[in-house]
Write a protein that binds this DNA or RNA. Structure first.
Lengths: 155, 155
DNA sequence: TTAAATCCCGAGTAATTTACTATGATTTCA
DNA sequence: TGAAATCATAGTAAATTACTCGGGATTTAA
C-alpha cells in the first residue's frame, strides 16, 4: 500500500513550483537542489506532469517550468493521478477503468476497497497546492516564534 | 497505490471464515473453491494470519481453520496489517516505524501522506468482519426481492 | 555566431517485489 | 493404515521500480 517515488517526488516538485508561482520559470536543477532529488529522474516525472497539462515548460537558457494554473486550482489528486494513474487499491475498483470481475455481484471485499478508494480520493481532491503553501508558511512562522522564545529565555 | 493480492485474497478468506464462525473448522480447500483461489497460495496467506493470532488451525483429517475471535472483534485493519504490514503510503509516515528523514521539519508533502494514511486507517479500523457479513446478507436479500419482482411481472 | 543553459527523448538496468508453484514432512481422524 | 489436512521451505518467472546514461533540440546572452 505504497505511493511510489514518482508520486512522492513529483508532489515535492509541484509544491516547489507552487511556491514560485508568479515568478520566472524555475529550472529543474534548482528544484532538484532544494528538494534533494536527482535532475535526471525529475525530468521523467515532470514530463508526465507536462503531458497531463499541469505544468508549462520553457526551453533554452533562462527556461524552466511553471504551473499551468493557479495553485488554488491544482489539487494533490491531480498531481498523484498524473504520476500514479487512477486511484485503485485493487483493479476491480479502479476509478476510471474497473476490471470486470465475475464475482462483482456478491464480492463483499469490494465494498471495502471502494470505501478505501473513496477516502483516499476525498483527501487528495480536497487539498490544493495553495493549501500546502499556506501550511508551509504557518510552519515557518511557528518556528520563528519558537526561536524568539528561546533567545528570550536565554537557552 | 495498490493493495497486493495478499491483502485482497486474505480478506476474502477471512470473510469466508467469518461466515462460518461458530461451526466446525473450515478446510482451506473449501475456502479456495468458494473464493476461487489457489490452495497453495492461500496456505501462505493463512500462515501469516495465524502468526498474527487472527485464526486458529486444526491439523489432520477434519481439520481446518477458524477465526480466533468473534467477527465483531476483528477489523479489516487487523487483517490487512497482518498481510501487508503497517499502513504507510510512504515510509516516512509508517504507522509503526517511520523512517527518519532529515527533511521532516519542513517537508510539506509529509502532511499529505499523513492525512492519506489516517483516512485509510480510519476506514479499515472501523469495519469489522461482522459488518461485512451483515452487508453480504443485505445484498442477498435485495437480490431475492428483485427476483420475486421479476417473476411477478413476468419478465 | 557561438557557447551555455535548458528542456526533451528513448534505452538500458540492477534490485526488488509479486504471485505464485513445487515438494515433502507432520498430524489427526476413522 | 490411509486419507485428509496443516506446516514449512525453496524456487522462480514476470513485472515493477527507481533510477542512470547518452545524446538531441531549442533558446538566450555575450
Amino acid at each position: 500500500m505504497r505511493i511510489s517515488t514518482r508520486g512522492h517526488y513529483g508532489l515535492k516538485a509541484m509544491f516547489d513550483l507552487a511556491q514560485h508561482y508568479g515568478t520566472a520559470p524555475v529550472p529543474l536543477k534548482s528544484i532538484a537542489e532544494r528538494q534533494n532529488l536527482s535532475v535526471q529522474y525529475l525530468e521523467q516525472l515532470i514530463a508526465m506532469l507536462r503531458k497531463a497539462g499541469l505544468v508549462k515548460s520553457f526551453r533554452g537558457a533562462q527556461g524552466g517550468y511553471m504551473l499551468a494554473d493557479n495553485p488554488k486550482q491544482i489539487t494533490v489528486g491531480d498531481v498523484i493521478r498524473a504520476l500514479e494513474g487512477p486511484v485503485a487499491p485493487v483493479e476491480c475498483v479502479d476509478e476510471i477503468d474497473p476490471k470486470e470481475c465475475d464475482q462483482a455481484d456478491y464480492c463483499i471485499s469490494r465494498i471495502v476497497w471502494e470505501k478505501i478508494r473513496n477516502s483516499i480520493a476525498q483527501v487528495m481532491d480536497s487539498l490544493t497546492l495553495a493549501d500546502l503553501c499556506r501550511e508551509a508558511k504557518a510552519k515557518e512562522n511557528e518556528k520563528e516564534r519558537e526561536e524568539k522564545e528561546e533567545s528570550k529565555e536565554g537557552v
